[in-house]
Structures are given as structure tokens and as C-alpha cells.
């Protein structure tokens, strides 16, 4: 089955992106496909390469980048939400791309299920 994922909150403050990450990993482990992970609202803050969490904490941004690299997952950051919050091409982490909101709607159309993670 093909899953689309929407993430509405940034890293660390809310658990939403952690839960989404664990969901995506579990879905892949079961042989499902991830059509796209779409970052919206403060969720765009998951895409900055400028975060530096303490060494004993998980690195949420790098974790997404690694998952994208290993499984070819399309990580899309909403351009309008990103510009509002200072997420630009120049500080974008590996594996993320900036694009329009249509990518979310398209994921709803193409994927078998769309799951929203937020707060």
C-alpha cells in the first residue's frame, strides 16, 4: 500500500514528527511504500540543516535525511510555509526539497492513505 504523510509540527517541541518517523519506518518494514512526506505549518522546521541537538539526543533532521537517502523517500517542504519561517534552499537539509502545496493534494490523490501528524 502507498502512504502519504503530512507533518504539521516542528522537531523537539512536539512529538508529532517522532511519531511520523516511527510510523514511516514501520510501514517500510512491512513492505509498504511512502508516496511522500509533506511538511506543513511549523513542520517545515524539520528541514533546516542548522539544528544541533545535544549529542545524547536524537537528531530529528538527520534522521529524515538518512531515511530519504536509504529508501528514496520524497520529503517535500511547503514553499509558502517555509518562506514564512525562514526555511530556504540555502539552509535546507539533505534529502528535502521545497515545493508547492499542490504536492500535498497530489499525495492525497496518488496515495492509498494520507495520515496527518500534528498537535
Amino acid at each position: 500500500m502507498k502512504f502519504g504523510i503530512m507533518i504539521s509540527e516542528g522537531p523537539y517541541t512536539h512529538q508529532a514528527t517522532d511519531t511520523a518517523y516511527q510510523f514511516v519506518k514501520a510501514a517500510l518494514a512491512k513492505g509498504h511504500q511512502i508516496h511522500r512526506v509533506f511538511f506543513y505549518h511549523d513542520g517545515v522546521n524539520n528541514a533546516t540543516r542548522l539544528t544541533e541537538p545535544p549529542q545524547d539526543d536524537r537528531n530529528i533532521v538527520n534522521r529524515w535525511s538518512k531515511l530519504a537517502e536509504e529508501h528514496g523517500i520524497d520529503l517535500v517542504v511547503c514553499v509558502a510555509a517555509a518562506l514564512r519561517r525562514g526555511i530556504l534552499e540555502e539552509n535546507l537539509a539533505k534529502g528535502f526539497r521545497i515545493s508547492g502545496l499542490g504536492q500535498l493534494v497530489e499525495s492525497g490523490i496518488q496515495a492509498d492513505r494520507l495520515v496527518v501528524f500534528g498537535d
Binding site: M1, F3, S8, Q22, F23, K25, A26, A27, A29, K30, H32, D112, R113, L114, V115, V116, F117, G118, D119
Partner: peptide
């Protein structure tokens, strides 16, 4: 359920609503 069970629940149901 664990995360795998979460995935199964999403797959088993036609749609999901997150009460954010």
C-alpha cells in the same frame, strides 16, 4: 498496538482523521 500495528490499522481502514 506497536508502530507496526498502527500501520496495520491505517491500512485496514478506508480513511483516517487525526483529532489535532
Amino acid at each position: 498496538v506497536d508502530y507496526g500495528g498502527f500501520v496495520d490499522l491505517v491500512a485496514e481502514h478506508a480513511n483516517t482523521q487525526s483529532w489535532l
